[in-house]
């Protein structure tokens, strides 16, 4: 596991975006070789998306040969509802870049047979050759995607009932009206994310500090589903100073001491096209 500690939200967003950029560039994607990227929604990854859009606009990267798979989507809200994850992805990422619609995959929470939708999503991931890099964020209760506390750590894509905490946290997006907040979602399973070659988790802000502590300093626990990635061979946690508040000084110092090594991962690769 790598723990990347940056000063603030903007720096951690930029670090994460550069890491993704380099992963795509070094993969050398092409018509017969798509880079598969798992993507989250929510406020945490927004800064990272902004940076990726910037890299696209300056000609550093293209998403022409990238396939994306989103982690989750609500059940039963219209696709064009401003709070749907389809809308989120369109407004904050897809409409700004050169990705083709047929290469993006977001679970459809409005189909009749939700279970079949989940199964077909897993099949699509398999057909694409699995996920190269799965990017995720977490909730303050340590949930990854909508794998709420208590979710099986080997779970696959499925229908999930949201925890009360999540519903209350989301109410702010629905005019504070609890009755309007979706109570169910489709989500990739912890196992689905575990299958990715590499996982990057973004954690920022003091309110996520306890979750980060649970994720990396305590044992694997299905009540903090993100802790499952302790068992993943290639996981990068990218966080800001605030998110480290509950960590031991020893842990923080150890990983900060390695930043000069880790920062090499986000240097501009020599093969990268020049900025316009």
């Amino acid at each position: 596991m790598k723990l990347i500690i940056l000063n603030d939200y903007d720096q951690s967003s930029e670090w994460a975006a550069k890491y993704i950029r380099n992963k795509i560039l070094m993969f050398k994607p092409g018509p017969d070789r798509y880079f598969t990227l798992g993507l989250p929604t929510g406020s945490t990854p927004l800064g990272c998306y902004k940076k990726l859009i910037e890299y696209y606009k300056t000609g550093e990267i293209s998403f022409q040969y990238v396939k994306t798979f989103n982690m989750d989507e609500y059940v039963g809200i219209a696709r064009d509802h401003p709070e749907s994850y389809h809308s989120f992805m369109w407004n904050n990422f897809f409409k700004h870049i050169d990705i083709k619609a047929e290469n993006t995959h977001i679970l459809d929470g409005n189909v009749k047979d939700l279970q079949a939708e989940c199964e077909s999503f897993e099949e699509k991931i398999t057909a694409a050759g699995g996920i190269e890099l799965f990017v995720g964020g977490i909730g303050p209760d340590g949930h990854i995607a909508f794998n709420e506390p208590g979710s099986s750590l080997v779970s696959r894509t499925r229908v999930k009932t949201l925890a009360k905490d999540t519903i209350m946290a989301n109410a702010r997006f629905f005019n504070g009206d609890l009755s309007k907040v979706p109570t169910m979602a489709l989500t990739v399973g912890v196992g689905t994310v575990m299958d990715a070659k590499e996982v990057m988790i973004l954690i920022t802000g003091a309110h996520k500090a306890f979750a980060l502590y649970k994720a990396i300093e305590e044992g694997v626990n299905h009540m903090w589903t993100v802790s499952a990635f302790q068992q993943h061979p290639q996981t990068v946690f990218v966080c800001d100073e605030d998110a480290t508040l509950e960590l031991r000084v020893k842990t923080v110092k150890y990983f900060k001491g390695m930043m000069h090594v880790h920062n090499k991962l986000v240097e501009r690769p020599p093969s990268m096209p020049k900025k316009n």
Partner: peptide
């Protein structure tokens, strides 16, 4: 045209 509908419904560009 609503480009979001074009993207998701028609996979158009």
């Amino acid at each position: 045209l609503d480009p979001e509908k074009l993207f998701f419904d028609e996979h158009g560009y």
